[in-house]
Amino acid sequence: MEQRELGFTKIRLPVVGQGTWQMEEADEAACIDAIRRGIDAGMTHIDTAEMYGAGEVESLVGKAIEGRRDEVFLVSKVLPSNASYAGTLAACERSLERLRTDRLDLYLLHWPGSEPLEETLRAFKDLRAQGKIRHFGVSNFDQAELSRAIALAGPSEIACNQVFYHLLERAIEHRVLPLCERHGIAVVAYSPFGSGRFPAPDSMGGKVLASIAAAHGATPRQVALRFLLRRQPVFVIPKAARAAHALDNAAAGDLRLTSEDLARIDTAFPLGPDRGVLPTL
Rank of each mutant, 00 (worst) to 15 (best):
R68S: 15
S203N: 13
M51G: 02
P14S: 11
L225A: 04
M23P: 08
A189Q: 00
A252D: 04
E260V: 15
D40I: 11
L255I: 06
L152S: 05
A144V: 11
F227I: 02
T267E: 14
R230W: 01
L108Q: 14
A149S: 08
R242A: 15
V57D: 13
I158V: 10
A268W: 07
Q222N: 00
H166Y: 11
H183T: 05
R275P: 00
I265Q: 00
L109C: 12
S211H: 12
I39P: 07
I11K: 10
A34K: 07
P273M: 04
E181A: 05
L281F: 14
G38T: 10
G55A: 12
E56K: 15
E66W: 04
G19C: 09
Y190I: 00
A90P: 08
P199E: 05
P270N: 09
R170S: 00
E115R: 01
I65A: 14
V188Y: 02
W21P: 04
I185T: 01
P273Q: 03
T20H: 03
F141A: 02
L167H: 02
G55W: 07
K239S: 15
A241W: 04
S259D: 14
A240I: 02
Y190N: 00
L179G: 00
H135I: 06
A189C: 02
L117T: 05
C31M: 06
P279N: 03
G154F: 14
S139H: 03
T280R: 09
L168T: 04
A151G: 01
T20P: 00
R36I: 14
L99N: 08
A26T: 13
R69H: 10
T267M: 11
R221T: 05
R231Q: 08
L96I: 05
A250M: 08
I150H: 06
L108M: 14
G253H: 11
A241I: 06
S195H: 12
I65Y: 15
L117F: 04
R4N: 03
D261P: 15
C92F: 01
V15R: 02
G131P: 03
R275E: 09
L121E: 08
K63E: 14
D274I: 10
K77V: 06
G205S: 08
T258Q: 06
R230M: 03
E58Y: 14
S147A: 11
Q222P: 00
L79Y: 15
R68Y: 09
P279A: 01
I158G: 10
G272L: 03
A123C: 07
W111S: 13
E28M: 12
L146Y: 04
H245M: 09
G38V: 11
R221Y: 01
R148V: 06
L89V: 15
L74E: 12
A213I: 10
A64K: 08
L146C: 04
R231V: 09
